[in-house]
Design a protein around this nucleic acid. Structure first.
Lengths: 310, 310
DNA sequence: TGACAATATAGATTATTTCTATATCCAATT
DNA sequence: AATTGGATATAGAAATAATCTATATTGTCA
């Protein structure tokens, strides 16, 4: 991997130039020089220097995150080639949002592991952008999520559509909105709660031109009262206040069990597509395709299959 | 980005050394030399050379796909830092583990937002190390978590102790472990489920000397059957199998509602301190101090206050 | 204030990269 | 079968970049 970045990671990990220098078997002035150079390349200060060592600035933090990804991606790539040479199979791990995990993935995975105890599938739950991170660095080979609006093209992923979903609105029992069908603007007048927390480092997935239009920012107004990465926390919040929880309709029953009721909408809701993101490079591998197949089947046992838009 | 990979992409795209050389404004022998070197680094032949040019081998194909990802990742990282530099100041946001959220944070946040609807607080739930990440990169300004054992000093954070807690073990109803008090080693013989996904990138938070002794590695063995970042998924898994879920005792009631029962321990459990981590540089800001105050009050309404160790 | 532990700087040295020039290879053409 | 054109490979020289040694500077803690 890029030498400067390797050294950068070492310095960040060690917390000092001298420490990292020892670890890397080079001298401290070399690192000093190289880190200055890196800062010039990046165009931002990466460290705060003191007589106690080096601490990362927030730009340094961002670079650190991403440099870790790069190193993982790099290592995973070399391993993949080595595996390829040996002719051996690559491990597999899938990611998912919590909705799909509850809806059908859980059972599918349990079944799969019973059937192939030697070749287990690992599962990583999280938000779609984090999963995208993990997939791009080779830690997972596919994940289930909404089609991501405004996703930068040429990112090396395939999207296999599974089903259509729409955003529904959920409120606590006894809420004023529950009497009759409501229009979007009426719903909008209540505080909104959503379960997605964008992190600055994920900006990079989006085309700069479309950054402002993506789904996440639609609700990025003062009326988003509460925003978290935890669905359970959203439910808690909506139960305790008059806020409206926005989420895929597929969790309707799940929410109902927890005391949240769907608001009937006046207008036809906007639909979105859910499906599987796969690393393009892994398409065609037998086990990958089989898993896609299984997920598709499991999904369609519960949800209507996807049909191309009219 | 790494020079060799950049050149590799150029050669792959051009289909020949000479073509790529022209495009890169360097000479063909240089590329010839460098591609040989890259093959040595990767450990596999990347090209088939002929008098008509260079074609990728299957290893080359794999590298090509991944190198493109790396290039994107690299470019996007630089963009992200540039964006960050342009400075998007965000509102205040606090992090927490799910336990504290359920226990008292939820109500506190609800109250706070009622009082200050114009200055909402965002909440990020997740494991302590991830929250530390988010705090250092400016995404959140403080978070609630166990005192992190072996945390590196010079990291620029304050810790405000709140209360003492201990780890408990939870299993599905009817589990064999439930009959009588159990020793740690007996419990240990069952598959363990934990809701923390230790990521190696967090290593840098720890003093090198103490890295091997920290809490997370205690369970880092093959017997960790299932490990995820989602507490709900852990519960699902523990309900469906014989696995033992390890978690703070404070969620005892929460788990019981969901069908998991606490295993009675033979030995006195080890206690740990929970408190608030704050960016040292933000100490003193009125809103920050007020939030700390409120969290402290809310915590002590439910849990005993922290007393310095004897 | 003095010792210590850290980073920064300057100049010399070493290692690497790149270039020029030339050789070699292969296939299509004469 | 020889020639030609377009490609890669190799050798050695030249240029450039990376690293080291030695020393200065800075900040913290006792």
């Amino acid at each position: 991997m890029d030498k400067l970045l390797t050294q950068f990671l070492a310095v960040a990990d060690a917390g000092s130039l001298s420490g990292a220098a020892t670890a890397l078997f080079i001298t401290q002035p070399t690192l000093s020089f190289n880190m200055n150079k890196l800062e010039e390349v990046v165009g931002a200060p990466l460290f705060e220097r003191s007589s106690r060592g080096m601490t990362l600035t927030r730009y340094g933090e961002t670079l650190y995150e991403n440099a870790r990804l790069m190193r993982r991606l790099y290592d995973n790539t070399l391993n993949a080639i080595a595996d390829q040479k040996r002719g051996s199979e690559r491990g597999m791990s899938i990611g998912s949002g919590y909705s799909w995990w509850t809806m059908f993935l859980r059972d599918m995975v349990v079944d799969y592991q019973r059937e192939f105890p030697k070749a287990p599938v690992q599962v990583s739950l999280g938000n779609q952008l984090r999963l995208m991170d993990q997939m791009l660095s080779g830690d997972i080979s596919m994940f289930l999520a909404h089609e991501i609006d405004g996703l930068s093209g040429a990112i090396g992923t395939d999207f296999v559509p599974l089903t259509r979903v729409y955003n529904a609105f959920f409120v606590r029992e006894g809420h004023v909105l529950l009497g009759a069908p409501q229009s979007l603007s009426e719903i909008d007048s209540y505080p909104i709660v959503i379960s997605s927390l964008a992190e600055s480092r994920h900006e990079r997935f989006f085309d700069p031109s479309r950054r402002r239009t993506r789904v996440e920012t639609v609700f990025d107004r003062t009326s988003v009262a509460f925003r978290t990465n935890s669905l359970a926390a959203c439910v808690d919040y909506a139960l305790a206040t008059d806020a409206v929880l926005v989420h895929t309709h597929v969790l309707r029953d799940h929410f109902r069990e927890r005391g949240l009721v769907e608001v009937v909408q006046k207008d036809e809701p906007r639909r979105a597509v859910t499906g599987i993101y796969v690393l393009r490079e892994r398409r065609g591998e037998a086990r990958v395709e089989e898993l896609i197949e299984r997920i598709t089947t499991a999904c369609h046992a519960v949800l209507p299959p996807w049909e191309p838009a009219e």
